[in-house]
């Protein structure tokens, strides 16, 4: 426990060090999640559009 406490304290600078790592993790995670979300959205829209165009083509035929 003591070793964990010492590790978290970072020689008295724990607040600064951990805040820096948390901020970096948060920004990178936000980038990744936003990117995944937008790719999935765009690719789903594209698939839906292609589907509807195919059905229009079939109706015409």
């Amino acid at each position: 426990m003591d070793r964990l406490g010492e590790f978290l304290a970072m020689g008295g600078y724990g607040g600064y060090v951990w805040a820096a790592y948390l901020i970096a993790a948060a920004v990178l995670a936000a980038l990744l999640i936003a990117s995944l979300h937008s790719v999935r959205g765009q690719e789903a829209r594209l698939a839906a559009l292609r589907q509807s165009r195919r059905s229009i083509a079939e109706d015409d035929a």
């Binding site: 980038l31 990744l32 790719v39 959205g41 765009q42």
Partner: peptide, 19 residues
């Protein structure tokens, strides 16, 4: 992340053209 985003942009461009 760049690959993911470019993929999204390519899909978005295709969506625009199809529309």
């Amino acid at each position: 992340v760049l690959i993911l985003r470019v993929r999204g942009e390519i899909a978005a461009a295709k969506v625009r053209n199809l529309q």
